[in-house]
């Protein structure tokens, strides 16, 4: 493991109108590490990931991947960088106009690393890695259950063998057993690829299963970083309140009564 972190965020800031969503996020993710970013709804978890992926341009701050500032990169290099990153979206974001096998091999086809003739076999191979039969490849995404869509989304994210994978709330909307199955698949796939994984979640069980390290984001700032195993008894009042789901604590929900 080199000393340069795979991903380094410094002072990442983003405002939407008058609302400050990210207020100087600093975060280091070491190569090969499983990082879980925790935080309540609207705390800026998704925006952080979208900034790293280049889907949102931050107002200030720097994003370095392998020690290189991606915000200063020319567009072509940035696109080449995205070739090495995979993403599992919260609701799957599968292309409903394409059959499952084309979804799974979309990136390989886009990069012309594979011919259409071979894509079906490749899709079957990747689908097997997430525990789906090859016959699923011929279905349309709308014919799949939520858990199957998640698994196809995972297959699509890992098919091009990325170095960095982002998971946006991988277990949200699934029953606890399916959630555990997905977590297991994520850990297996990440380990097999030797990839760096960044997951955002508010599911504590999931966070402990897929994370080595955890970071807590609150009101657009990282307030705590530590081993994922200590979640719930970290010594940080905010983190422990979040992990144990208590109403009383330093985090107050902004509700009007």
């Amino acid at each position: 493991m080199s000393s340069t972190p795979k991903i380094r965020l410094r002072g990442l800031t983003k405002r939407f109108g008058a609302k400050t969503v990210l207020d100087g996020v600093d975060l280091d993710v070491a190569a090969g590490e499983g990082m879980v970013v925790l935080g309540g709804s609207g705390s800026g978890k998704s925006v952080t990931i979208k900034c790293i992926l280049g889907l949102i341009t931050p107002d200030a701050g720097s994003i370095e991947i392998d020690g290189r500032d991606v915000l200063a990169m020319p567009r072509r290099e940035r696109e080449a960088l995205n070739d090495r990153i995979g993403m599992l979206f919260q609701n799957g974001a599968l292309f409903d106009s394409l059959p499952v096998w084309e979804n799974v091999c979309f990136k390989l086809l886009a990069q012309k690393r594979i011919t259409r003739a071979k894509a079906r076999d490749k899709a079957a191979e990747v689908l097997a890695q997430v525990g789906l039969a090859a016959s699923v490849g011929d279905l349309s995404p709308s014919e799949l259950s939520g858990g199957m869509q998640k698994r196809v989304g995972l297959a699509r994210a890992i098919a091009a063998e990325p170095e960095i994978i982002f998971f946006d709330e991988p277990t949200t909307g699934l029953d606890p057993i399916m959630g555990a199955v997905i977590d297991g698949l994520i850990v297996d796939c990440v380990k097999r690829l030797g990839a760096t994984a960044v997951s955002i979640t508010h599911d504590m069980a999931s966070a402990r299963r897929i994370g080595d390290t955890a970071a807590m984001i609150h009101k657009g700032r990282i307030v705590w970083t530590g081993p994922a195993a200590t979640l719930g008894h970290s010594g940080n009042a905010m983190v422990d309140q979040f992990a144990n789901g208590s109403r009383e604590g330093p985090i107050t929900m902004e509700l009007r009564k």
């Binding site: 992926l53 993403m87 979309f106």
Partner: peptide, 14 residues
């Protein structure tokens, strides 16, 4: 609205 356009970007497609 279902993130499919963002997904295209992450899949090396403009």
């Amino acid at each position: 609205v279902t993130d499919q356009i963002d997904a295209l970007t992450t899949l090396s497609t403009n």
